[in-house]
Design a binder for these strands. Structure first.
Lengths: 143, 143
DNA sequence: CTAGTTGTAACAGTTAATGTTACTTCATGG
DNA sequence: CCATGAAGTAACATTAACTGTTACAACTAG
């Protein structure tokens, strides 16, 4: 069950809010979003909290409370969402420091770090090429 | 502790075997490799077992047993290693099927799958551009 | 036959994602 | 002023994966 669906859920939630607002509603509740995502409202509130920290969403409390977008769908890329909800790198180096007496153990760290840096750049470029507006357009096109 | 270091360890092990053979030894033991990686020999045997299934390494049993490369370092790319030891995709879709009555819930799956497919291609291209020979050369260059 | 190494099962510890319950905090509308 | 509804958040259970470890069976060169 534990594949990494945080990016998927975050994109889903933001896109849902964007469409809901575009249809004339002011705020979306975590309950409504959770119904569409098919999960628990607390899961949505936690994720949207991270997106709010990143400046992508905003929340109002009290009666008539809920969530809004802080930016237009067209100005939010998947890279923005990725940075907001995915903390670490994709690949990790050694759990324990390898043997520094060994040539390979001594030198492999920086070499692999350079490779992983290149991968990170490639992934980020790929994510930066799609906005939430693109996502919503493709969703509506398929409907 | 649980970042994904399987690719790092696998590359380390194969490169170590390659250098060891290049220095005139026939076989490398999981004990020796584990010392360089700074982990338990069973961890190495498990990973090398997957690499053997992928046709990258071979093992001999009995006395004087150990591991050898099935292919030259220059013919093994990081993508070959990645395919051998990393089963799934980087990002996952929804844990539970989203609401099919909702436009977003109904249409977001294929859209995100297309995005993730593009990322997978980019990562694979990046990994395919480096061979274990490149890795060993960079390690020796830095020494 | 012995010794050394692989092959593998079994288990513990750690981390992370996900889901759930329960409660507090807050602001709006009556 | 108060009742209501929703966010904020703590706490916990479950599941899964990675890593590490012990133990032992299987195997083969000498």
């Amino acid at each position: 069950m534990s594949a990494n669906s945080r990016l998927t859920i975050a994109v889903h939630a933001l896109t849902w809010i964007g469409l809901y607002q575009r249809r004339g509603h002011e705020v979306a509740t975590s309950e409504q979003i959770a119904t569409s995502v098919n999960t628990n409202p607390v899961v949505i509130r936690r994720l949207l909290g991270e997106l709010r920290n990143a400046g992508l969403a905003a929340s109002r409390r009290g009666a008539g409370a809920g969530w809004t977008l802080s930016r237009d769908l067209a100005s939010i890329t998947l890279l923005d969402v990725y940075d907001a909800v995915e903390p670490g790198l994709i690949f990790g180096l050694h759990p324990s420091v390898p043997d520094p007496e060994c040539v390979v153990g001594h030198g492999i760290g920086p070499v692999m770090a350079a490779v992983y840096n290149g991968i990170d750049i490639a992934v980020r470029e790929e994510l930066a090429g799609t906005t939430l507006e693109d996502v919503l357009r493709d969703i509506l096109k398929a409907a």
